[in-house]
Every structure is written in C-alpha cells, then in structure tokens.
Simulated scan of single mutants.
Amino acid sequence: MPYLYLTFAIAFEVIGTSALKASDSFTRLLPSLVCVFAYAVSFLLLALSLRTIPVGIAYALWAGLGIVLIAAIGWLWFKEPLDLPAFIGLSLIVGGVVVVNVFSRVLPH
C-alpha cells in the first residue's frame, strides 16, 4: 500500500506542477485551484507513504520521477525544448531511481 500512496503522490505532484505552469503565475483561477488541490493531495499521500518507506528513499522517488515526468510533459504538452544534455541528465535520474529500487536494502518488501 505505501507504494500505491507514493505512486499517486507523484501523479498529483505532476498534475499540480502542470497546473502551476497553466496558472500563469496564479493569474488564472481554475489552474490555480487545481494546483493548490493537487499539491495538497500529493503531500498527504507522500506523508502516508512515509509511514513505511524511509523518507530519503520516498523523497528520492517522488522528486526524481516527478522531475522526469514534468520534463516530458513540458516537452510534449507545453512544447518546451529539451536538448541532448537534458535527455542525458533525465536518463541519469531514471537510472538513479532504478538503482534505488533494485539494489537498496532499506526498502520495505
């Protein structure tokens, strides 16, 4: 269950950050409300996942996957360019998430 909470925390963080971009610095009401709601839900779900998952591991997954997903959404949805160094850096983040999940002995099973 903690990884389900963490998965949804990441999803809501991505929704919140996408809405933050769409809010145009909180000048558009609906995206602003979506942003605040999504971040609140994300933090609640992250807190629930921390009951079992160590904080360093949970935050690394939450932040790392959030970065990669937001970069992809920025590239695909908002048409923001990503160059080769950006793709390499994002690949390294994904690699780090994989290493944490596959090789870390501190993760609950």
Results as ranks from 00 to 15, higher is better:
1 M>C: 13
1 M>E: 12
1 M>K: 14
4 L>F: 15
6 L>W: 04
10 I>P: 02
10 I>F: 07
12 F>W: 12
12 F>C: 11
13 E>F: 00
14 V>W: 02
15 I>R: 06
17 T>R: 01
18 S>C: 11
19 A>E: 05
21 K>W: 08
22 A>T: 07
23 S>F: 01
23 S>P: 07
24 D>M: 01
27 T>E: 05
29 L>F: 01
29 L>N: 06
30 L>H: 03
31 P>Q: 10
32 S>Y: 04
32 S>H: 00
34 V>L: 07
35 C>N: 12
36 V>C: 01
36 V>Q: 04
38 A>P: 00
39 Y>R: 03
40 A>M: 05
41 V>T: 08
42 S>E: 13
44 L>E: 12
45 L>W: 15
46 L>S: 09
46 L>H: 02
47 A>L: 14
48 L>D: 08
48 L>F: 13
49 S>H: 02
49 S>L: 00
51 R>M: 10
51 R>D: 13
51 R>N: 14
53 I>F: 07
53 I>E: 03
54 P>A: 10
61 L>N: 04
61 L>R: 03
62 W>N: 02
63 A>P: 00
63 A>S: 09
65 L>H: 10
68 V>N: 09
69 L>D: 03
71 A>S: 10
71 A>D: 06
71 A>Y: 02
72 A>C: 11
73 I>V: 07
77 W>C: 06
79 K>Y: 09
80 E>Q: 09
80 E>G: 06
81 P>W: 10
84 L>V: 14
84 L>M: 12
85 P>R: 00
85 P>T: 10
85 P>C: 15
87 F>S: 08
87 F>C: 12
88 I>M: 08
89 G>W: 15
90 L>E: 13
92 L>T: 06
92 L>G: 11
93 I>V: 14
94 V>K: 08
95 G>V: 07
96 G>E: 12
96 G>V: 00
98 V>N: 08
98 V>P: 01
99 V>Y: 12
99 V>G: 07
100 V>W: 04
101 N>L: 15
102 V>F: 15
102 V>R: 15
102 V>K: 15
103 F>W: 14
104 S>E: 11
104 S>K: 11
104 S>L: 01
105 R>N: 14
106 V>H: 14
107 L>T: 12
108 P>G: 13
109 H>S: 15
109 H>A: 13
